[in-house]
Computed example of a mutant assay.
Amino acid sequence: MRELDTIDRMPGELIVIGPILLLWLPMSRVPRIRRLIAVVLAVLIALAATLVHLLPRAVLEITLGGLVLALVTVLSGHLMEPRPTAAVRRTRVAVPAGLLAGWLLLVLCCGAIAVRPAPFFPTTDDVLPLPAGLRATAHPFDDGDCGSGACFRTITVSGRPGQSGADLYAELKRHVKAHGWGDGCRPVGWLLDHTTKCAELSVKDDRATITLSGSRDDDRHMVTIG
Rank of each mutant, 00 (worst) to 15 (best):
I7C: 09
L14Q: 14
V16C: 09
I17D: 03
P19V: 02
L23A: 08
W24C: 01
S28G: 07
P31F: 03
I33D: 00
R34G: 04
L36T: 04
I37F: 06
A38M: 03
A38I: 01
V43L: 14
V43R: 01
A46V: 10
L47N: 00
L51K: 00
H53Y: 00
P56E: 01
P56S: 01
R57S: 11
V59R: 09
T63M: 03
L69I: 13
R83Q: 11
T85Q: 04
A86H: 11
V88A: 14
V93S: 05
A94N: 12
L100A: 11
W103L: 07
L106N: 10
C109V: 15
G111R: 06
G111V: 03
I113W: 12
A114S: 12
V115K: 12
A118Q: 13
T123W: 13
D126T: 14
L128S: 03
T137C: 13
A138Y: 05
H139Y: 13
H139D: 10
F141A: 10
D145H: 08
G147R: 06
S148N: 05
S148Q: 09
G149M: 08
R153V: 11
R153D: 02
T154H: 13
G162Q: 12
C185E: 02
P187Y: 01
L191T: 14
D193I: 05
D193Y: 11
H194K: 14
K197A: 12
L201W: 02
S202Q: 12
R207E: 15
A208F: 08
R216C: 05
D218W: 06
D218F: 08
H221M: 15
M222F: 10
V223T: 13
